[in-house]
Design a protein around this nucleic acid. Structure first.
Length: 722
DNA sequence: TTTTGAAGTCTCTCC
DNA sequence: GACTTCAAAA
């Protein structure tokens, strides 16, 4: 092994920013009693090399990396070097002579797989390039393309993303003549959610309904019929949804067939990252894949389990030792990321959760400032605080890339995005799949998809309805007539549309014929195809939508992305499995060297770290989200989510919340907001507080007669029963 | 049967 | 504030 290589690479990744030696600014943020001199800087910033052994691994990490064959569970708290441990383990296996292509590394995102393999390459050289890595879904896709046909899954199947699956569910829902006015019947999204949950967790549908949607229990039979039709439809149309990818993989390796043995025999060692966020189905897959050997390494932290909405269950990690007798358990508890004051705070935060594996984390990074709890007057004040502080830190030498603003849900950064744009601060936003969900993007993709899979009902349905005079009913009839012709490529041309749609139909037939007959094998074929589609589609778009410009530029971006793929099939699969993660991935000066600020949902921040982290909207109802307050389990998950967000910080942590928020639901009044319930007294004691007022806010006009935000007199009266 | 306009409904996290 | 659903008109 080349121990130093790993260390230096790590250093490069996490270099501590240079700080200006000049005097530190002191300023007072506000004029209230709670004002504090601000900020207090950490006196010492410890160089990272001091905290890392020469080999780059501490004792526990080294033990995990060098573990021989057999099941291994690594409990890795936040910032304890779990990635490097996994990377070193891969390197170790390679050094032992395991063939790289017989190692499978399953991660949560494609990005982290690439990052790990790149780091492994630094340790052991290019041999690691053949290590198989990716997400569960991506790996399932690869295997199904390779072996699917032998398992009755026809070649050329199309992967549906969630939106497609919901659309298809709607077709099943409509066909059964449900959704009548009498009683409220579950929406297509709800149906899909229940279906997906059933597949991923194996809970019976009635149980899911009772737990989550008791009001729909009476429709149990209808729902079962819809699910049956949905399943049937997928088969007929050669469509595969996300859940199918996992389900088929599981069924393949669980069967008693030579094929199962062949697939399970592909890998000698399997390593799984973020195991706390896997679901029951994924656990089944792993059991099947390890049927002949038990060389399974899983890494996770039960305190960071945040994907139960996707069926993930913490039981996978808690019960792992029972499921794999002889499991070696290695806990990693030394945190290399955050300073002690930050850790004190986050440890307290998570200590409120019930069932836990991990103990408190410790660090040798003593010193540093306490996390800040920032009370802002309102949202603009919160935004201004964050932006001002980012600029200060930047001037002091922290690159923008070393800072992140985290929030519970994508829309919560809207105000901040406007302000950043206005002030010319470059940023990229992670999480949220808005781009691919936009109707116009899906429209264009529908053209490509029917070329790829002529039986793609969802896409045909879309295309048909683009034509004037064709709505839901006519489109359904057209799809049926095409099905009757066995979906041959002429089927669409033979369909006779209503008079109004004739011209549009002829144009569409011609375009598809043209695209089918000209399979130019040159580079950028997909991009060229999109350009041709747009010659027809752009006009439709102009007619259908008001704000055309942003939509057209979306399509430009789509074309740019497409240019990077060798074939239409690869492009479509990749879009479904690895949707562009950041706005920047979408083709805007995607120079990764750019120094840009990161805005991210708490979910998408998992596994990353920054020198300074801002968590905004720490308001009850926003974080935790009011929607997630149904049960104690849900609240606990929200708490873990906040834990994940706050533990991303190395040196600076700011948690901010606005006091007055305009609430559209309560018709046009400002309401006083409660600080997030997770920041209880004990946690707050680990933080320093600051209040940011809003000096720019216009003083309320004397004649406005606004009701007091808090009516002390009324409260007093109520209290004494007057 | 499609289209249009108006009222009504939620607000998320992601492969 | 954006998107869906409903009812009436073309």
């Amino acid at each position: 092994m080349a121990p130093n290589a790993g260390g230096s690479f790590d250093k490069a990744l996490r270099q501590t920013p240079v700080r200006k030696a000049s005097g530190e600014p002191e300023y007072i943020c506000c004029m209230t009693d709670e004002a504090r001199v601000y900020p207090q800087r950490p006196r010492t910033v410890e160089p990272r090399e001091k905290t890392e052994l020469a080999a780059g691994l501490n004792e526990a990490q080294a033990r995990a990396a060098a573990h021989p064959d057999g099941p291994l569970l690594i409990i890795a708290g936040a910032g304890t070097g779990k990635t490097r441990t996994l990377v070193h383990r891969v390197a170790h296996l390679l050094e032992r002579g395991i063939k790289p292509e017989r190692i499978l590394l399953l991660t949560f995102t494609r990005r982290s797989a690439q990052e790990m393999l790149a780091r492994a390459e630094r340790l052991v050289g290019s041999v690691s390039r053949s290590v198989q890595g990716g997400t569960f879904h991506g790996t399932a896709h690869r295997l199904l393309r390779r072996f699917g046909e032998r398992a009755g899954l026809p070649h050329g199947f199309t992967i549906m993303d969630q939106g497609d699956a919901v659309d298809l569910m709607q077709l099943s829902r409509g066909k059964l003549g449900l959704g009548d006015k009498k009683k409220r019947f579950p929406k297509k999204e709800t149906l899909h959610h229940v279906y997906s949950r059933h597949v991923n967790t194996e809970y019976p549908v009635p149980a899911i309904l009772s737990e989550e949607y008791p009001q729909f229990r009476e429709f149990e039979e209808e729902i079962a019929r819809i699910f049956a039709d949905y399943t049937e439809r997928k088969t007929e149309r050669n469509l595969v949804d996300y859940d199918d990818l996992l389900l088929f993989w599981a069924m393949l390796v669980e069967s008693e067939s030579p094929l199962a043995e062949q697939i399970a025999g592909l890998y000698d060692h399997i390593l799984v990252d973020e195991y706390q966020d896997t679901n029951h189905l994924q656990a089944r897959i792993l059991r099947g894949m390890c049927r002949t050997h038990q060389n399974l390494t899983v890494v996770g932290d039960d305190a960071q389990s945040i994907y139960s909405f996707r069926g993930a269950t913490i039981r996978n990690i808690l019960d792992f030792p029972q499921q794999y007798p002889g499991t070696a358990v290695v806990p990693l508890e030394e945190n290399y990321r955050s300073t002690q004051p930050i850790l004190d705070c986050t440890n307290t935060l998570i200590s409120r959760a019930e069932e836990r594996y991990t103990k408190n984390l410790f660090t040798r990074r003593t010193g540093g400032e306490q996390p800040w709890l920032v009370t802002a007057h309102d949202e603009p004040a919160q935004t201004r605080f964050v932006v001002d502080r980012i600029l200060e830190l930047h001037e002091e030498g922290t690159p923008l890339r070393e800072m992140a603003v985290l929030f519970r849900a994508g829309y919560m950064s809207a105000d901040l995005e406007i302000e950043l744009t206005a002030r010319g601060i470059p940023f990229e936003k992670w999480g949220g799949l808005k781009f691919l969900e936009a109707a116009h993007v899906k429209d264009v993709l529908a053209f490509l998809r029917v070329l790829e899979n002529p039986r793609d009902e969802v896409s045909w349905y879309r295309l048909l309805q683009l034509m004037p005079g064709i709505g839901e009913v006519t489109a359904r009839g057209a799809v049926e007539s095409m099905a009757a012709l066995a979906w041959t490529s002429e089927a669409f041309g033979r369909y006779v549309p209503p008079p109004r749609a004739r011209a549009a139909h002829a144009a569409l037939v011609e375009l598809l014929d043209q695209l089918r007959s000209n399979p130019t094998e040159a580079d950028g074929i997909v991009s060229t195809e999109i350009a041709r589609v747009r010659r027809l589609y752009d006009d439709i778009l102009r007619e259908r939508y008001d704000r055309v410009e942003p939509r057209l530029s979306d399509l430009d971006q789509l074309q740019t992305i497409a240019a990077g793929y060798p074939s239409r099939a690869a492009f479509l699969s990749a879009l479904a499995l690895e949707p562009p993660q950041a706005t920047q991935d979408l083709g805007f000066g995607s120079d990764s060297e750019d120094d840009v600020l990161v805005l991210s949902t708490a979910h998408s921040s998992k596994g990353r770290e920054w020198d300074a982290v801002f968590v905004i909207w720490a308001v009850d109802g926003y974080f935790p989200m009011s929607r997630a307050l149904g049960s104690d389990d849900e609240i606990d998950e929200e708490r873990r989510l906040l834990y994940v967000a706050t533990t991303r910080a190395r040196n600076h942590l700011f948690v901010t919340y606005p006091l007055n928020v305009y609430d559209s639901r309560r018709s046009a009044d400002y309401s006083i907001d409660q600080l997030s319930r997770f920041l209880d007294r004990g946690v707050r004691e680990m933080m320093q507080r600051v209040v940011v007022d809003n000096p720019d806010a216009p003083a309320p006009a004397p004649d406005a007669a606004q009701p007091p935000v808090v009516d002390l007199r009324a409260m007093l009266r109520g209290r004494f029963g007057a």
